[in-house]
Design a protein around this nucleic acid. Structure first.
Lengths: 230, 230
DNA sequence: AACATGAAAATTGGATCCAATAACCCTAGT
DNA sequence: ACTAGGGTTATTGGATCCAATTTTCATGTT
């Protein structure tokens, strides 16, 4: 497959930033570029390249890379460089099992407190998903839809954890949506889910969500098996 | 209250480490010192102090501090320094609610797979807890006991998450055990728990664990309320 | 005596320089 | 022609130096 080695300046801006803000800015730019897929897994990130791009020394770049490594978005190897971390792989099954646990609980807490605005917002995301074809946007809308349903959960720590996992999934979908059949399929699940939430049918909604996530897990699983099998 | 500003060299070793290992060593030393409480929350950590202590420049120290900040063990403020992060506080309720969710699931997965050795190990920890008076050791044994019961859970990601939370609790107990009555209390819970696990009574064990954690949450909660109230 | 103002010291962050190491290429030998 | 070896180059990590900012302390004024 022909991987075109696109320049970093095309995927990140190239504005000159004041030095004392450099670390934060660079970190944020890189993070979002990695999360939304503009920097695919495996991409090598050079310190000097980023430094000249933002018009600073390598120092703030180093720090930013270390921060991202700590969040396991990058893997830094001595004298070799930083590469964008691989996507969900071996632990896909664990990840989705965990998500079922976390997200059903969030749903349980949230549904009774959801108001008409929340439901309307969720339905709006579904509507946008209907006509959306860009993968990055589909991933984003999917995340926003789910978070809209969980948004009223009381446990903030739980919500933060869920958001991390949804970001992971978004990143994964960004790359593999096309190659794995999935597409319209989930829309029915989404509609049923928001309907149940709207009617405050907690148990039914939980059951739907569980089914929805297990289905996704199975799809990804068989997709990954098929890939490594070939 | 009289806080004696003990020297860093007393809580960390003072061996000279080869420069190319400095970052990792320093990070590890600091992490364990923070986790097991030798560095109490609020302690200010100076870059130069660590640097001279280990006989290296400030560079590897900086990086180590950043790593620890990313794990939220430190809070670094511009031109002011790094202070050891505060313990469980506002989010204690969220934390324990989350732990109930995570740990009951781990227990559900683990119990059917526990063998005689696992049970024996758990009982050994209980026995050591009987005669132990040092808080740090009590916290450690408590963590090891719980992990022993969860150890056979299939979901590795779940286990990693639980271990993080248990480390947090260990750190908290290290400081507040004495001032909050708690002590022998949990031993009965522990014994009942391991008995249920030994008899493969999953639902009963889960119920016991839930009660155990909720009790701990209530204790900590009232302790914190009492503290801030005064 | 108390407070405000200012200067000095302490401390962190960035820039530049040097060392160590790994990747790469080119050449020579089979 | 292909492989092995060595040397050059690229790249990261640490050390040192400088800039920016905050804190602290002292001094003067009210």
């Amino acid at each position: 497959m022909a991987e075109k080695p696109k320049l970093l300046s095309t995927v990140l801006g190239s504005e000159q930033v004041p030095p004392h803000l450099a670390r934060g800015v660079i970190e944020e730019r890189l993070r979002s570029a990695i999360l939304d897929g503009r920097l695919p897994p495996g991409t090598a990130v050079r310190q000097q390249e980023l430094a000249t791009l933002f018009g600073v020394s390598r120092m703030p770049v180093r720090e930013a890379l270390r921060q991202l490594e700590a969040q396991s978005l990058l893997q830094v190897v001595m004298h070799k460089g930083a590469v964008v971390a691989p996507l969900i792989g071996e632990d896909a099954v664990d990840t989705y099992a965990l998500r079922v646990l976390l997200e059903t609980e969030a749903l349980r807490q949230s549904i009774p407190l959801l108001d008409a605005d929340d439901i309307a917002l969720a339905r709006a995301y579904i509507r946008q998903l209907e006509s959306e074809t860009r993968h990055a946007e589909i991933g984003r809308l999917n995340r926003l839809f789910h978070m809209a349903l969980y948004s009223k959960a009381q446990n903030q720590k739980l919500l933060r954890m869920i958001e991390i996992e949804l970001n992971e999934e978004e990143r994964f979908l960004r790359f593999h949506l096309s190659s794995m059949g999935l597409g319209k399929l989930t829309q029915d699940d989404h509609i049923a889910l928001v309907d149940a939430a709207s009617d405050k049918l907690v148990d039914e909604a939980i059951e739907l969500l569980e089914e929805h996530l297990n289905h996704a897990a199975r799809t990804i699983r068989s997709y990954l098996d098929r890939q490594s099998g070939n």
